[in-house]
C-alpha cells in the first residue's frame, strides 16, 4: 500500500497486484528486553531448582531407609526404624491416612455439592458474592483452629452418633467397635474418642470449601443458552440442573473432589490434635486409635536418630507421591472436561 499524502486513513481494497509472499518476521530485541528475558528465565530456573532440590533431597534421604527395609517398608505395620529391616513400615499409617481422607471425602462431597449448587443456582444474586467470599474465608481458616474446634467441641457431640452407628450398623465390619456394648447403659463413651471418624469429620470440614469453590466455578460456567433451553422445554429447576448443570460440571466435580482428597491426605496438625496414634492397621473407623503419615512425622521427628529421620523421609516421600498422583489426576480430569478449559485449578 502506497503512502497516502492526504491525512486520511484509507481502507485497502481487494489486492490487485501479485500475491504477497509470506515475509519473515524478525525480532530484534534491545538490551533491556534481553535483560528482562534473562531475569525472568533466571527466576523460573531458580524456582525449578528449589523444587527439584526438595524432591531430590526427599528421594536421597529416603534411600537409606528404603534400602534397609526393601519391600517390607510397604507391608510392615509397626514403626521402629532403629530395630532394622522388617521392623518399620507404612502399611498402618498409610491405611490410616487413606481412611481419614475417605471419611473426609464422604462428608465433604455432599456438603460441597449442595453448597456449590446453592451458591450458583439458588442464592439470590445480591448475596452471591458475599457467599463466595465466605466460602473462601472458610478455606483460609488455619488448620489449628479446625483442630481446636474438632477436639474441644465436635468430639464430645459426635460420640453419641458414633454410638448410634455402631449399635445399629455394627454388623458392617468398618463400623464395628471392639469394646462397646450397646446394651450396657453404664458403658463409657471413651472408646469412641480420638477415632478415624472424628479426625475425618474435621478434615472433611477443612476440605469442604476447597471442593465447593471449584464445583461452584464450573457450575456457574454452564451456558445460559442451554439452561434456558431446558426451561423452555418445560424443565423444573432441578430438571434443568440435572440435565444441564451437573453433566456440564461433571469433570469439575470429580477434579475438585480429588483436589480436596489431596489436601486431606497431607493434612497434619488437626489430625495430630485429635487422634491417638496406633501402629497397626485400624479398620474400625469409629474406634479409639488412628494413624496418619503426616501425624507420624510430626510426632516422631524429634527423638529420631539418623536411621529414624531417613525412615521418616521415606514415609514423607510415600505421602508426597500419593498426593502428587491424586493432584495430577485431578488437574487432568478438570482440564479434559468441557467446563474445565477456563477454570483456574
Amino acid at each position: 500500500m502506497a503512502p497516502v499524502d492526504t491525512p486520511r486513513t484509507t481502507i485497502p481494497g481487494a489486492a490487485t497486484g501479485p500475491a504477497d509472499a509470506p515475509r519473515r518476521v524478525r525480532e530484534r530485541r534491545g538490551g533491556a528486553d534481553l535483560l528482562f528475558r534473562a531475569l525472568a528465565r533466571g527466576g523460573g530456573v531458580v524456582v525449578l531448582c528449589v523444587m527439584l532440590l526438595v524432591g531430590g533431597f526427599l528421594l536421597y534421604r529416603a534411600q537409606d531407609a528404603l534400602g534397609v527395609a526393601g519391600w517390607s517398608f510397604l507391608t510392615t505395620q509397626e514403626w521402629d526404624p532403629d530395630a532394622g529391616a522388617g521392623r518399620f513400615g507404612i502399611a498402618a499409617v498409610l491405611t490410616g491416612t487413606v481412611l481419614i481422607a475417605m471419611v473426609a471425602i464422604v462428608v465433604a462431597v455432599p456438603l460441597a455439592t449442595g453448597a456449590a449448587l446453592y451458591i450458583s443456582e439458588y442464592a439470590p444474586r445480591r448475596i452471591r458474592q458475599t457467599l463466595i467470599s465466605l466460602v473462601d474465608l472458610m478455606a483460609a481458616v488455619p488448620s489449628v483452629v479446625y483442630g481446636l474446634w474438632g477436639f474441644f467441641l465436635l468430639q464430645d457431640n459426635v460420640l453419641g452418633l458414633s454410638n448410634w452407628i455402631t449399635t445399629y450398623f455394627g454388623w458392617i465390619p468398618i463400623f464395628d467397635v471392639k469394646d462397646s456394648d450397646p446394651r450396657d447403659p453404664l458403658s463409657t463413651m471413651t472408646v469412641y474418642t480420638s477415632s478415624t471418624f472424628v479426625a475425618g469429620l474435621v478434615v472433611g470440614m477443612m476440605i469442604t470449601p476447597i471442593v465447593c469453590s471449584i464445583m461452584r466455578e464450573v457450575f456457574s460456567q454452564a451456558p445460559p443458552g442451554e439452561r434456558e433451553g431446558a426451561y423452555a422445554l418445560g424443565a423444573t429447576k432441578w430438571g434443568m440442573i440435572r440435565a444441564v448443570v451437573l453433566p456440564f460440571g461433571r469433570g469439575g466435580m470429580i477434579g475438585g473432589t480429588m483436589l480436596g482428597l489431596g489436601r486431606a491426605l497431607g493434612e497434619t496438625i488437626a489430625i495430630v490434635m485429635i487422634i491417638s496414634p496406633v501402629f497397626k492397621i485400624q479398620p474400625h473407623i469409629l474406634e479409639n486409635g488412628a494413624s496418619s503419615v503426616a501425624a507420624l512425622i510430626a510426632l516422631r521427628y524429634g527423638d529420631s536418630t539418623e536411621a529414624g529421620i531417613s525412615a521418616l523421609f521415606a514415609a514423607g516421600l510415600a505421602l508426597f507421591v500419593m498426593t502428587l498422583i491424586v493432584n495430577f489426576l485431578a488437574s487432568m480430569i478438570i482440564a479434559r472436561s468441557r467446563s474445565g478449559a477456563a477454570s483456574e485449578v
Binding site: 523444587m51 503426616a294 510430626a298 523421609f313 508426597f320 498426593t323 493432584n327
Partner: peptide, 22 residues
Amino acid sequence: VRTIAEAMTALPSIVAGLFVYA
C-alpha cells in the same frame, strides 16, 4: 517449570518442614 510448580502444590506442609529440618 509450570508442571513442577503444580506438582509441588501437592507437597504436604509437614514434608516441607521435614526438608528444612533435615
